[in-house]
Design a protein around this nucleic acid. Structure first.
Length: 111
DNA sequence: TAACTGACCGCCG
DNA sequence: ACGGCGGCCAGTT
C-alpha cells in the first residue's frame, strides 16, 4: 500500500456503491465497466480491501453464476446470504435464485 | 528482485 | 456436455 493504489480500488468501490438495493453485480461486469476485460480477479481483490469500508456493499457482488463465492470472506459465513435475503434476494445453497431479475449491469443500467 | 496468489471468466481439449 | 488451464492487474511474501 503506497499512495496511488486507491485509483483502481476507489473506482471499484464507487461502482459497487451504486448497486441498487435488491440487485447484484458480477465481477466481470464491474471489471468490464472499469475497462479491464479479464480484470474480474482484481475486482474481487479490491473487494477484499473494501472490508475496511462501510459504504461498500460487497455482499451485492457475486460471480457470473450468481454464486456467493466470497461469502467466506465476510465476518460471518452466512452474513452475506443473510444480507442479500434481507434485500429480497432468494438464495439457495449459496446460489442466487432469479438471478436474471436481480442481475445489475453497470454498463447497461448505470448509463 | 522475482514469483505466486487472489472473492473470476473464457477458451480449448 | 464437462473438465482443466491460462490470462488479466496489483498486492503480498
Amino acid at each position: 500500500m503506497s499512495e496511488k493504489n486507491n485509483n483502481f480500488f476507489q473506482d471499484v468501490w464507487e461502482v459497487v456503491k451504486l448497486i441498487p438495493k435488491g440487485r447484484v453485480a458480477s465481477y466481470g461486469d464491474i471489471a468490464a465497466y472499469l475497462g479491464s476485460k479479464n480484470g474480474a480477479r482484481m475486482v474481487g481483490w479490491a473487494m477484499n480491501a473494501s472490508h475496511m469500508l462501510e459504504d461498500v456493499p460487497a455482499h451485492r457482488v457475486v460471480n457470473k453464476k450468481g454464486l456467493l463465492t466470497g461469502k467466506h470472506h465476510f465476518d460471518e459465513t452466512n452474513k452475506m446470504q443473510t444480507l442479500l435475503e434481507n434485500e429480497g434476494i432468494e438464495i439457495i445453497d449459496n446460489q442466487i435464485q432469479d438471478l436474471d431479475k436481480v442481475k445489475w449491469n453497470p454498463n447497461t443500467e448505470l448509463l
